[in-house]
Amino acid sequence: MSELVKITIDDREIEARAGEKLLWTALENDIYIPHLCAIKDEKRPNASCRLCFVEIEGVDHPVTACTRKVEEGMVVKTRSPHLDRLVKTGFELLLSDHDLKCAKCAANKSCALQTIAKERGLKLRQKRFKLIERDYKIDDSPAEFAYNRSRCVLCGQCVWADREEAKVGAIGFTQRGVNRAVTTFEDIPLADSICTECHLCVDACPVGALYYKSDLK
């Protein structure tokens, strides 16, 4: 699968490994595509954040870059009015139930949402969708870190770290629809669960949902 092919992204010719996912090829070549849920080693990506849309010549609808494999001669566009609109909508939906008190957040200035907003010129607030205010209790039971569900974007990075890196299985996706959340078994505090407090999930969190207490100013 390491056969090298030539593809074009945003009018730039790029040499890429065939079979690799488009998103990682673009990122390696300093072409930014917004993404939250993509995990490089994951065989079947979730493609759930709906932010990494690109247009490919010959494909009549936008596709998610995290699921599309690189092929010889591919011509890819990462920006167009249609794509920008799609990404903006996805981004605004994420913000519609996100606790946007950035100044009080441990991930301020290192948050993936802020990066996306900056790269795409989007605002960190939205008025299109009804705001769903969350008042989940912050789980600060672990010694070094805490979990604020109101800031979770459901990207699944922490669940992946918990399962594939730490091999613990303390957290997982529960509930459905707007109530979907990452929780422990029976929603108990992390310290009471089988969590080993290895904090790999905290390192994986792209936003300020799982954060080190020491990072909180």
Partner: peptide, 25 residues
């Protein structure tokens, strides 16, 4: 019951959090 979900998780070697996720989904 919680106890049943725990035992099922043990028996099937699926993390209990996933059994709970399924039951709440």
């Amino acid at each position: 019951p919680v106890l049943a979900m725990e035992k099922i998780a043990e028996g099937t070697d699926v993390p209990a959090a996933d059994v709970y996720g399924l039951a709440t989904f």
